[in-house]
Simulated assay, not measured.
Amino acid sequence: MAKPNKKLPTKTVAIYCSQCRALLYKYAKGGKGAMVKCFKQRILDDHTQTPCICPKCQNVFARDTLVRGTPAYKIIGGKVVVK
């Protein structure tokens, strides 16, 4: 499978915790589909102290994994809101 593009997409989205609405990431998202995974190299601003855990409510919202050989966070369904 192909790796994600080196050039970052121009569309920037904010990812929030669905439970407490705390800001988690500013992310360069490609495409218009649902937020399923976050490639680590595309995260512009990281507001979490520990990876995949909300800093405000300590809710686990993702899992650390490899997608197409690239480090990424796999988002758990319904745990985040994208604006």
Rank of each mutant, 00 (worst) to 15 (best):
A2W: 01
P4C: 04
P4Q: 03
N5G: 13
N5R: 10
N5W: 04
N5T: 14
K6A: 14
K6R: 09
K6F: 10
K7P: 03
K7E: 15
K11R: 13
T12R: 12
V13G: 05
A14M: 06
I15N: 01
C17H: 06
C17G: 11
S18L: 01
S18M: 00
Q19C: 09
Q19A: 13
R21V: 11
R21F: 14
R21S: 15
A22L: 04
A22H: 12
L24A: 09
L24H: 01
Y25F: 15
Y25S: 10
K26W: 11
K26G: 06
Y27E: 03
A28Q: 09
K29V: 07
K29Y: 02
G30F: 03
G30Y: 04
A34E: 11
A34I: 07
M35I: 13
M35W: 00
V36K: 01
V36T: 07
K37S: 09
K37W: 02
F39I: 04
K40Q: 07
K40Y: 05
R42K: 02
R42W: 04
R42D: 09
L44Y: 01
L44K: 07
D45T: 12
D45E: 12
D46F: 02
D46S: 11
H47I: 04
H47S: 12
H47P: 02
H47R: 07
T48E: 04
T48H: 01
T48G: 01
Q49M: 07
Q49R: 08
Q49H: 10
T50A: 11
T50P: 02
C52T: 15
I53Y: 09
I53P: 07
I53C: 10
I53R: 06
C54H: 05
C54D: 04
P55Y: 08
K56F: 05
K56L: 09
K56R: 13
Q58N: 15
Q58Y: 10
N59Q: 15
N59P: 00
N59L: 13
N59G: 10
V60P: 02
V60W: 00
V60K: 08
F61W: 05
F61P: 05
F61Y: 14
F61H: 02
F61S: 06
F61G: 10
D64P: 01
D64H: 03
T65W: 01
T65K: 07
L66Q: 11
V67E: 08
R68Y: 11
R68A: 15
R68S: 14
R68F: 09
G69E: 03
G69P: 03
T70L: 00
T70A: 03
P71Q: 08
P71I: 08
P71V: 11
P71H: 03
Y73W: 15
K74S: 15
G77S: 14
G77L: 05
G77E: 14
G78Q: 06
K79C: 12
K79M: 14
V80N: 02
V80I: 09
V80D: 01
V80G: 01
V81W: 02
V82T: 14
K83P: 02
K83A: 12
K83I: 08
K83D: 08
K83T: 13
